[in-house]
Amino acid sequence: MKILVPIKRVVDPYAKVRPSADGSGLDTAGLKFEINPFDEIAIEEAVRLRERNGDIEIIVLSIGTSESEEQLRKALAMGADRAILVETSEVYDSPSIADELAAQVNEIRPDLILMGKQATDDDANQAGQMLAALLDYPQATFASKLTVQGSVALVTRETDSGEECLELPLPAVITTDLRLNEPRYIALPGIIKARSKPLDRRPPTNAPKLRTRITRYELAPTRSAGVKVNSVDELYQALKSKGVV
């Protein structure tokens, strides 16, 4: 069985990122870059599936500049078998990422595509579903539990009102949510071993066809502190005077 995990290099999700002075971009100078945390959960889940089921090849793939090699090497250190870097400096939106991934899937032919539900930079939550549509594969988004038996995936996914369990025939696209697992700590032997694992660089199949483009970035308005009250009674009176209780 073959699992493809597409990953994205994103700015450190815990860093404070500000728009550039003219609002045309983001100022990421001096900030660290990481694997999108939801994609990291996808890598971890693929590795756990291999630990449970055996005989699984895990391929990680990233679309981006040569800097994404850093994230692909980390994925290899976590346990992926080989990496593909679709090397490009072009700007992509979610539909064009899905287009390129679909072209790659047609060549790689994985049985399962595991990826983050969204990237923590653009928060779009589109690429996985779009990829599933292009391939006409079934999808399960927001996965919080996954088992694979033969050619069937059993997925528990989070919903607006609780959760549901879906049975999907493979091949399928599954996007990961926070509670699926906690990615492992990478030990030194893994990092050393990752250096000798294959990393294949290739150009994109097609130039990206953008459906949207970001024209401006601005800081979100922030709230300021209000007043502190001294007792529950004062709080109650304040709420009452505002007409909310």
Binding site: P95, Q126, A133, T212
Partner: peptide
């Protein structure tokens, strides 16, 4: 919502359209 993102992103792709979330 989680449901609209699940379904509409798939729909946007089937329509060959653009998508803006949130």
């Amino acid at each position: 919502s989680m449901r609209s993102k699940d379904i509409l992103a798939r729909l946007a792709s089937l329509l060959g359209g653009a998508m803006v979330t949130d």
